[in-house]
Design a protein around this nucleic acid. Structure first.
Length: 121
DNA sequence: TCCTTGACGGAGA
DNA sequence: ATCTCCGCCAAGG
């Protein structure tokens, strides 16, 4: 990018005013996350790239942080490039780890072995 | 307006 | 394996 314009899209739901062609970034992210199969994980950067926004890993994190509490999206299958859970709070952190282990994903210390569990579309 | 802080990541050292 | 730097970008202070 040229580091100019490309702003707007603040909160949500107002994309039909500018061409209404392709889905909003957040929506593309949700779609990709929804594709991660059970028992596999994907990294924030991986999701960003698959959503057509390479190097926007942080955007993925922000987007997932906004998900409503009972979201059906498999957000727990998204971890960082080190194979670790990025969630800060001990509650959410434990919830994510528990969900992953329940799907058969194993941890070696604090990390998932990506070589073994990374989703490869 | 500037600075800091994040559910980040890759290249170097 | 750890630590910096740097890219990226929205929210808050």
């Amino acid at each position: 990018m040229s580091s100019k314009h490309n702003n707007h899209t603040s909160s949500a739901q107002s994309d039909e005013l500018e061409g209404a062609s392709q889905p909003e970034p957040n929506q593309r992210i949700w779609q990709v996350v929804a594709m991660i199969p059970e028992g596999r994980v994907a990294t924030y950067g991986q999701i960003a790239a698959l959503a057509g926004m390479p190097r926007h890993a942080r955007l993925v994190g922000r987007t997932l942080a906004l998900l409503p509490k009972g979201s059906k999206l498999p957000w727990h299958r998204v971890i960082n490039a080190a194979g670790r859970i990025s969630l800060r709070g001990s509650d959410s952190h434990m919830t994510q780890r528990h969900r992953l282990e329940r799907e058969g994903i194993e941890f070696v210390g604090e990390r998932v072995v990506l070589k073994q569990y990374r989703w490869q579309p």
